[in-house]
Amino acid sequence: MSAALTDTPGGTRGRLSRAYLGMVAEPWLYLLPSLLLIGGVMLLPLAIGLGYAFQEFNLLRPGAAKWVGLDNFQDLWADPQFWRALRNTLVWTGASVTLQFAGGLGLALLLNTRFHGKKLVQALVFLPWAVPTFLTALTFSWLLNPVIGPVPYWLSGLGLIEEPYNILGNPDTALWGPILANVWYGVPFFAITLLAALSAIPSELYEAAEIDGASGWQSFTKITLPFLAPMIVITVMLRTIWIANFADLIYVMTGGGPANSTQILSSYIFTTAFKRLDFGHASAIAVVLLALLMIYAAILLAVRSRLVRR
């Protein structure tokens, strides 16, 4: 290195290091626009947003923001709406992920077999994934409306409700409306991901199992599931995080109502920021949600590393 320092500029050594510098800089040059945008529009606001959680900051109440330490979190602790939203988040996420996964696994197993008209069927069953979420939300709130939708009549026909009314209007049942829409929208995603994993399982395994006299159920539990398990864990984890953060359907279908019965944490963040312009509280809720999701991810990753080692 010391030789390079004493070299005259423009000497072999200097030219070499300039070429080396060029090589080091080249990938960064291609990455620069991406990094600038992500830094400026996502990471910097993320830092600012984390800061808001510790400030008293409401656009409707004039006056500069001031640091208040953990006050926002203390307010949350005493806020029954927050606890309600936390419980709803668990129901919403748990039910959506379970039903999407079950539906998606079934669909992927079906699509992984041979049958007539496969291309067409595949295109049709994946279509819900492409429908804009606001439209999914509106369509399902219309389907659930007894004036123009058939679903209330089906439910009362099945004896699930006494008379055909709108389940979105009843605080006890309203959350199931967005969950239904979410299942419809999310089954294709699970099916696509699991289908990709399924097609990666070597078919010799099944042939060998068949020769050894394994039943279909045995090859499913002894070959398919163990092969899919690591993929299932990571997909379920990412999906859970995504769904817990997914406020669009609930916001459009119920706005969190009736009487806050369908508010989940993420929709509560949005209504607090959007309707009340209370950025301090909104950010405090967001920080709680972020912390919960991080704990959840850490647990699932630990489970996954045990699965992979086995």
Partner: peptide
């Protein structure tokens, strides 16, 4: 490279609504 890719993954994990207020500001 690993750091950048971790940052990119991070942007997909946190609740995007955290930044709705700062972006508005």
């Amino acid at each position: 490279k690993r750091l950048v890719s971790a940052l990119l993954l991070l942007t997909q994990m946190f609740p995007l609504l955290i930044i709705i207020a700062p972006i508005y500001r």
